[in-house]
Amino acid sequence: MQVINLKRQASGVDPLPEAVMRALPYRLSDEIRRTGYPVIEEIRMRASRRCSLVVSGRNIMLDTVLEPREVSDILEGMCQGSLYAFSDTINQGYISLPGGVRVGVCGRAGCEGERIIGIYEISSLSVRIPHKTRPVGREICRLLHGFKYTSGVLIYSPPGIGKTTLLRSVATMLSSGAWDSDQDPLRTVVIDTRGELAFASEGSDLCLDVLSGYPRRQGIEIATRCLNAEVIICDEIGDYEEAMALVASHNCGVPLIASAHAENITQLLSRTGLRLLHEARIFGAYASIRRDGRGGFLYDITMHSECF
């Protein structure tokens, strides 16, 4: 046992989050450790098929094949033996674990009309693991400062680029004032609808309030009316009904920093919900992001006045 433990330490593999490690079968977690990858972005488990990892955007196949019963047991383990407690999010295709881990759930849907009432015969699980990165997002903070905190910024990119990571870092910078030596901390409210922004483990010197699991519309109302927010941050907007509600509740003048999926500004503003937000002048700028290969981002800023 001593030799095995020393070998694991020598491999230099960052430990996976505890909530994930506890639920994985030993043979799978052991194979993951033996791969030696220091940073794993995703673990994908499929019933009766080989598991795989996502490392730096590449798919790495593993040898471990899980039985359907094992995949179901892993989900039950992640739900702490309380599947009912995660019913609502499972029906939307995911569960959120402590530390910002998001697990995509795939299986057979039980439906009542258009409504999914349960997911059975779980066939695959996709575990997305967040990692700490160096502070990024000063440009977003400078934009906001340039608007004198009267307009917001919408960050957009294709999926998987790092919008959530960027939002997390921007929230930390704004709530600590760390993005500039002359800046005071701002009362920052994060509406963490899907539990991905995960601030539980962040520093104690942040002027930060987190509304975890709140729908975005209600979260913004609470942030502006009850929490006296100076800036509001939320993830993945774009739904038309949500946009209408955001416009209705956003007459308070508190800037909103949000993210959305889109390849380019034309595609972004062609979506009905985002077009509505654009015409209501919720955002003063739109920031397209891409990775710079060194853990940071490159920005392509389009001001509101430059858009059609």
């Binding site: 039950e76 739900c79 033996g81 309380s82 599947l83 009912y84 407690a85 019913s87 609502d88 499972i90 029906n91 009432i117 349960g118």
Partner: peptide, 10 residues
């Protein structure tokens, strides 16, 4: 206990 979804559990 805990092996079913909310409606069924209730």
């Amino acid at each position: 206990f805990g092996s079913t979804f909310k409606d069924e559990q209730l």
